[in-house]
């Protein structure tokens, strides 16, 4: 049976169509979820896509986190639903306290779009189990507020618990502490990542196919862990 992966559209979501395409290419059925509708329509996993929800005129993700659909998602995530937050989605997950830390303005103060090498630090999450730890991947990064920050104790704990999911290598594009590009929660079902795996799923339009691994990983996870 085909897994159903929800992709949420908030007002101002931009990469929702791309996330849905990536889900489809990975072999699952994308299900579009609407910010104002709290129902998850029976999806097996959820992607919070990139964009500028509500214009991000306030802190990024600060308003989206109060959307009706988010209340349901937060509950479900605590119950083990795999959730991937990409870029603005990562920011929303931090605002919703599903992930620690925060994303702040890039250190150099510019929006930056480039193809970025990452090292996958752990395969022990719902979204990275298809990678080898230490594997290097090439994924586009594009953000203005992608600088990951947290207090030292939190960072140390993330490192100690193996919850740093990916790090920037070959250059840190935004000043993130400890080059952190992605983190996960304690259970490993919720992952926030600043770069955009959904833009690296087709040879024609991406710098690599490395992004696909995130979407196929969750399918593997779902097979292994029936609800």
């Amino acid at each position: 049976m085909t897994a159903r992966v929800g992709v949420v559209t908030f007002p101002g979501s931009l990469d929702d169509g791309d996330a849905a395409r990536a889900v489809r290419i990975a072999g699952a059925e994308p299900v579009r979820l609407w910010h104002a509708d709290p129902a998850l329509h029976g999806v097996d996993a959820v992607v919070l896509p990139g964009g500028f929800s509500y214009g991000d005129y306030l802190r990024c993700g600060a308003i989206a986190r109060f959307a009706p659909v988010m209340e349901t998602i937060v509950d479900a995530a605590r119950g083990g639903l795999p959730v991937l937050g990409i870029c603005n989605g990562f920011q929303i997950l931090c605002e919703a306290h599903l992930l620690p830390g925060a994303l702040t303005r890039n250190q150099h103060l510019h929006f930056r779009n480039r193809d970025q090498f990452l090292r996958i630090e752990t395969a022990a999450t719902a979204w990275t189990n298809g990678f080898q730890p230490g594997q290097e991947v090439l994924i586009p990064v594009k953000n203005g507020e992608g600088c990951y920050v947290a207090d030292t104790a939190t960072l140390d704990r993330l490192e100690a618990e193996g919850r740093v999911v990916a790090r920037y290598i070959g250059g840190n594009p935004n000043g993130s502490q400890r080059d952190i590009a992605a983190v996960t929660n304690e259970a490993g079902n919720v992952v926030g990542i600043m770069p955009h795996p959904e833009h690296a799923v087709e040879e024609l339009t991406g710098p690599s196919l490395d992004g696909l691994g995130f979407f196929t990983s969750v399918l593997k996870h779902l097979v292994g862990a029936p609800a």
Partner: peptide
Amino acid sequence: VTGAAEPVDTPAEQPTDVPAESG
């Protein structure tokens, strides 16, 4: 030929992260 943005030169990986400035 290939894609749009093919990785051009791969920046070599730095084993550990390089502290920003050192770059």
